[in-house]
């Protein structure tokens, strides 16, 4: 197993959590009600914690002296490895919930698998994180149902939110040459095998929410190779501002 593959994989795991955590933190102080504000902050905190662990692993594996902060704050778009779903803008609360719903259901299955990873660090991070993500999934599922089976307005908004996010689903289940060897070695999870269970979970919640499954569409891919949407650059320019403006300073 090359360290390069493991570095790549740890970056993907860490960047998914980091970018979604950053997105959720944008809500802080502006959510529709105080209880939601606290929940979104909680989820954001969990994700930033996961990112810190995975990016530390990436830095350690790479062995070039980069720590989690160096990876988070001093890489540019082409080197970010998160899926396109997590970098999508918050939009309204429905769009945020649609994103969380699709992602957390996937991340929970992924981490459940990774608790059995042959890499001890990954297994340990996943073991802690899978409990956190079970809560994220419940939060998102419950809001899907409330918004879908709430008012006409909320139903329209959540349907639009899902419609925005749906093209990024297939990327979650993609396996490419960069990580295939990790799957073979029992270190990475074979996400293709998670699709059936994910589909069933999503279908169940959408049925509870009285929402229709979005129609299939052409997948938008590229995040894992650094080919992102236009949104990520703006997110990074905000997140990385201090580290970029004052290189070498300690904070």
């Amino acid at each position: 197993m090359s360290d390069k593959a493991l570095f790549e994989y740890a970056c993907r795991l860490g960047d998914d959590s980091l970018i979604l955590g950053q997105r959720l933190s944008e809500w802080c102080g502006h959510a529709p009600m105080l209880e939601i504000d606290l929940s979104l902050a909680n989820i954001g905190l969990d994700l930033i914690g996961q990112a810190t662990h995975f990016l530390k692993l990436a830095g350690d594996v790479e062995g070039k002296g980069r720590d989690a902060d160096a990876l988070a704050f001093r890489r540019d778009v082409l080197d970010f490895r998160n899926c396109l779903l997590v970098e999508q803008p918050n939009g309204d609360f429905a769009q945020t919930i649609a994103r969380q719903f699709l992602f957390s259901n996937w991340q929970e299955l992924l981490f459940r698998d990774l608790t059995r990873s042959r890499n001890e660090t990954i297994a340990a991070i996943a073991a802690k994180a899978v409990k956190e993500v079970a809560y994220h999934t419940r939060f998102a599922d419950e809001w899907m149902v409330r918004l879908g089976d709430g008012t006409d307005e909320s139903r329209g908004r959540i349907a639009a939110g899902l419609d925005w996010m749906w093209r990024f689903v297939d990327e979650l289940f993609e396996v490419d040459a960069a990580i295939a060897p990790l799957i073979a070695a029992g270190i990475g999870a074979d996400v293709r095998a998670l699709r059936t269970e994910w589909d069933a979970r999503v279908a169940k919640t959408l049925a509870d929410a009285t929402l229709e499954l979005p129609k299939p569409r052409r997948a938008t891919l590229g995040g894992r190779a650094g080919h992102h949407s236009e949104h990520l650059g703006h997110l990074l320019s905000e997140m990385q501002f201090l580290q970029r403006a004052y290189p070498g300073a300690t904070w």
Partner: peptide, 30 residues
Amino acid sequence: GMLPEGNWITRAPSLRRKAVLLAKVQDEGG
């Protein structure tokens, strides 16, 4: 009071500072 500090969560200079600030502002909401 969540607003002036919330203004810097997305620009916090390290992962630790970001987490601590987000947790702090969340406390204020609590």
